[in-house]
């Protein structure tokens, strides 16, 4: 791996729900001790079921929410300790594309207003011709600038969202399920667009998704999350999984080729409540390989440094 642009060290976040009348306060760990690194120009995928903390992780990395503990280093600078002015300056180097293309654009802003907002926020003049240039880069006609988001389709809105993210020429983009709200045919276009932009602009992506098939197609390395913690890091998209959960995830995603489809062994049981974490491995009560040790002890993420797995009985 090349020099890491983003380094996440021991990142955790606890959410407390305030107690009320006849209600005890509760707390849950949405993200538990996550460490990862994204190399310059790399696409790192993060997969997991909904509720596994991957969107929280995305927001922690960009410090849109504050971590309970841990650090996020952008090119060696710790983002979690920056003051307001320095953080604003650092935000020029990173941006985010959001899942919902409908609520991610202000309905009162024209497309031109949306893509120039980064300049307004950073108190910089808008370069002449920048609007048309940005729209062209994401495959929209310059005439779209005067329109409102409600006049655009979901795919077009997502292109506007990508143009906004790229406005200040960031190096690092967090893509939070950028295609999850789109039709399948549009998904492919957006992925093509993101892939092309990465090659052309040398971007680094943190790609959050629940779609393992998409992540395997698009990403260089894959981080698998379960209940707020990393269970496995796949060094590339072809390596066989070692963690039973990753295996179950892969089995549950359909292959387009019927000959390659395996018989499904659906996961039994439910994801445990993050309010009451099990003492041992979080996956133990759904895992076919679990034994007494898995229920009592939490497996650390170790083994091969290139392919770490948090499991006592890897495949």
């Amino acid at each position: 791996m090349s020099q890491p642009l983003i380094r996440v060290e021991g990142l955790s976040r606890r959410f407390d729900t305030g107690g009320g009348f006849l209600k005890a306060p509760r707390s849950m760990w949405a993200v538990r001790d996550v460490s990862l690194a994204v190399g310059q120009g790399e696409v790192l995928g993060v997969v997991g079921e909904s509720g596994c903390g991957k969107s929280t992780l995305a927001r922690l990395v960009l410090r849109l929410i504050e971590p309970t503990s841990g650090r996020v280093l952008l090119d060696g600078t710790d983002l979690t300790t920056l003051g307001a002015a320095d953080l604003r300056a650092a935000r020029r180097r990173m941006a985010m594309v959001f899942q919902d293309p409908y609520s991610s654009l202000d309905p009162r802003y024209t497309v031109a207003d949306v893509v120039t907002e980064p300049f307004v926020v950073q108190r910089r003049p808008v370069p002449p011709g920048a609007v048309a240039e940005m729209l062209e880069a994401v495959g929209l006609p310059a005439s779209a600038a005067a329109g409102y988001p409600h006049q655009l389709s979901g795919g077009q809105r997502q292109r506007v969202g990508i143009a906004r993210a790229l406005a200040l020429h960031p190096e690092f983009l967090v893509l939070d399920e950028p295609t999850a709200s789109l039709d399948v045919s549009i998904q492919a276009q957006i992925i093509e667009l993101l892939s092309g932009l990465r090659d052309r602009l040398g971007l680094t992506y943190l790609f959050i998704s629940h779609d393992l098939g998409l992540v395997r197609y698009f990403c260089d390395r894959i981080v698998v999350m379960y209940l707020g913690a990393v269970v496995e890091v796949l060094p590339d998209t072809t390596t066989a999984p070692r963690h039973p959960y990753t295996r179950a995830l892969m089995d549950s995603s359909f292959s387009p080729d019927p000959a390659q489809r395996r018989t499904l062994a659906p996961l039994a049981g439910e994801i445990p409540s993050p309010f009451a974490l099990p003492a041992g491995c979080a996956f133990a009560d759904r895992c076919p390989r679990a034994d007494a040790r898995c229920l009592a002890e939490r497996p650390p993420l170790d083994g091969d440094p290139a392919h770490p797995t948090a499991c006592f009985h890897p495949l």
């Binding site: 985010m96 959001f98 991610s104 906004r164």
Partner: peptide, 17 residues
């Protein structure tokens, strides 16, 4: 709670904006 508010914050917008 709308995402466009979060989007503005991710660009570096303060409370005034």
């Amino acid at each position: 709670g709308e995402t466009f508010i979060e989007a503005a914050r991710s660009l570096g917008a303060g409370s005034g904006h």
